[in-house]
Nucleic acid binder design. Structure first.
Lengths: 152, 152
DNA sequence: GCCGGATGGTTGATCAATCAATAATTGACG
DNA sequence: CGTCAATTATTGATTGATCAACCATCCGGC
């Protein structure tokens, strides 16, 4: 077996590959399901969740970008679209005129409530065989991974 | 606490959010690191790994698309670019003239060997605090997730 | 053998994200 | 105070992925 093939069996590379593959596959599948059933793309859902969870239902654009792992430029236009759809609005910040808040609207909260129901149902199918204990373990591992030290 | 906020705390929704967030963040960070150090974008790396692992170093386009979670159209152009870079070639299938194989080249194997080293090193930083036992548990959970039953 | 439906891959059009450059504002320091 | 580096969001240009339409090929039933 040539070196390259042996090296690709590096355990960490495999583990990381598994992580990305599982995430990509599930996001695709559940994302299209969610959008088909509610009209809300999965990214929109993520935005709504973050905003709804936040103080006063709003977050600065940059903070939102960080939370959903997008560029600030990307979020600018994403919020444009969601604004056009009536699910969020922009709000000026009183104390720092550079920052612009994205704020969830009532329509946004309503849509979110609907979408959460659908999404949770779909997720129950996916996590069918998982015990509470296993889910807790998974949560813990993922949290550690999320905050893992990154290479220089 | 309003209903929407309570509902967004649905445990499975959170778990799924964690999974996607961890994957997105790490892929972005490690992907830019890999590309900066080797010139190979992370998708290319994934392609090279799959091809190198496969029988005769080649896979039908569609099979490759499935493995890296892309559309067949997406893979067509991805392979175009990697072909232009000399890392893969297309090979006709002898028994079915519809199928086209993507095959890793020697240059591709060389680049992969280099990239695996870099990537593995970076991954060691990320998985620093994880024991072998924990990694095994994670692997197992991710595998089950990858093959999880999907909603209709 | 041949026809009709399925399968595999490519292509054109479109959409959305990134990157780099820009504009506006803030805060710190001389 | 006034200047300058740093921060925040937006915009234009480009890249890459999707979707749908398409072409070629294969295979099962007649």
């Amino acid at each position: 077996m040539p070196d390259a093939a042996a090296a690709t069996d590096d355990a960490l590379v495999s583990t990381f590959g598994r992580l990305l593959e599982a995430a990509a596959r599930l996001e695709r599948r559940l994302g299209t399901a969610l959008e088909a059933e509610t009209g809300v793309p999965h990214v929109w859902f993520e935005v709504l969740v973050r905003l709804a969870r936040s103080e006063r239902g709003m977050l600065p654009m940059g903070e939102l970008a960080g939370q959903i792992t997008l560029t600030s430029g990307g979020v600018t236009r994403l919020v444009d679209r969601m604004d056009a759809a009536g699910l969020v609005t922009r709000q000026a910040c009183a104390t720092d005129r550079r920052v612009s808040y994205a704020a969830i609207t009532d329509a946004g909260r309503a849509k979110l409530a609907e979408a959460v129901g659908v999404h949770a149902t779909n997720l129950r199918t996916v996590f069918d065989g998982f015990s509470d204990r296993e889910l807790a373990v998974l949560d813990r591992l993922l949290d550690r991974l999320r905050g893992a030290p990154l290479p220089a």
